[in-house]
Design a protein around this nucleic acid. Structure first.
Lengths: 198, 198
DNA sequence: CGTAAAGTTGACATACGTCAATTTCAGTGG
DNA sequence: CCACTGAAATTGACGTATGTCAACTTTACG
């Protein structure tokens, strides 16, 4: 599956549960007014599209391949059957979904109470934790992220995201090359993220 | 349980699953900086605190009684045992949590892309759907909501919320009495909520 | 009936979005 | 391998929605 391919679209039926084997996927949502937010990124080993199986049977978001990607998927009956026979699978799914719910709730609080700079910092720290691997230059996030992606995951415009990221690059906090971000020191970003508003 | 009582606090251990029998509960979250958001309100028949059982065993939010409230609760072993024996309970829990996840994701999109006025309108429409009952004056929301509650669920300040609600009251869109809101016509609010930004 | 909580309202400050013009980059085809 | 072309990114100027601060009024409840 090549870069930019839509794996599924918001509203599609025939929902399946997916897992990323290799590459990366962007899960985003588009409102009736066309405004877009990125809900999350999924890397190797991550699952997506699972929740829709248990709600209305339509995907609530779009999934797009960020780079060349391999993925596997299961149909609803396969998964339900598995859960009936092995309740632990269902229980661990609740765990996964529950954790995600808490993450999204944290984002709601951030969006409601923090400034853009802090939200971007938080987003990068989270991405570094999830997708980062250490290099001599710092923690590299191996997903290809456009400014627009960073903006959409932080709830801002690509202009503001661009200004802030360029500022950080000038200050030596990170390096941005060919859509790959390398964070010199995540704890510096964390400090920005936690800064009081006053 | 009388008005204002804390049912549990963010970070508390000894998590139990709760259900509201009578009254109303506000689920809110406080950030390290003291800023607050309301995640949702729970009315009779609603359950809360369930997700924490499956994640880290600590409540991720505060629960406060909005009015005099009766509630029931179950311990973790009781619920897990039930789910082991009746997988359908686990599966339907995924359904409930999944729906909530989608709602929170919608709010993320709203916070990221809409103006305060639209967000408040949406919040009221949702509350009317969930907690409203028809009266001659319109749809009455039977939960006691302070301006601060409306603000915290819409991601704004009580000042801005006050201005907007007072404006709507002047325009005859709603009546606000003793912390009870009555919406003359929800579709008018929906129209405000859907207004393009342009 | 008094006191504290809740709500209103005005003046002002600012973070951020919008608009628009350029520049840089990345991938394709010759 | 290089030129070409559309996508991505940068940057400045400017407007405004919304937060902040502060004073005041109204309401709720012991």
């Amino acid at each position: 599956m090549s870069r930019g391919t839509r794996i599924f679209n918001q509203g599609d039926e025939g929902v399946r549960a997916h897992a990323v084997i290799e590459g990366g996927v962007r899960i985003s949502q588009t409102g009736s007014d066309g405004a877009q937010v990125v809900l999350r990124f999924v890397g190797p080993g991550g699952i997506f599209g699972t929740v829709a199986l248990f709600t209305d049977g339509r995907y609530p978001a779009d999934a797009t391949a960020l780079s060349d990607t391999f993925e596997a998927s299961w149909s609803e009956p396969e998964l339900l059957d598995l859960m009936e026979r092995y309740p632990q699978i269902a229980i661990s799914t609740i765990r996964v979904v529950g954790r995600r719910l808490q993450e999204v709730q944290d984002r709601v609080r951030e969006l409601a109470t923090q400034r853009v700079e802090q939200r971007i910092a938080h987003a990068l720290v989270r991405l570094a934790k999830q997708f980062g691997h250490s290099t001599t230059a710092g923690t590299a996030i191996f997903l290809p992220l456009r400014r627009k992606d960073v903006a959409d995951i932080s709830g801002t415009t690509l202009h503001t995201a661009s200004r802030i990221l360029t500022g950080w690059e000038r200050a030596g906090l990170l390096v941005s090359q060919r859509r790959r971000l390398t964070i010199r020191d995540p704890s510096e970003l964390l400090q920005i993220a936690e800064e009081a508003i006053d």
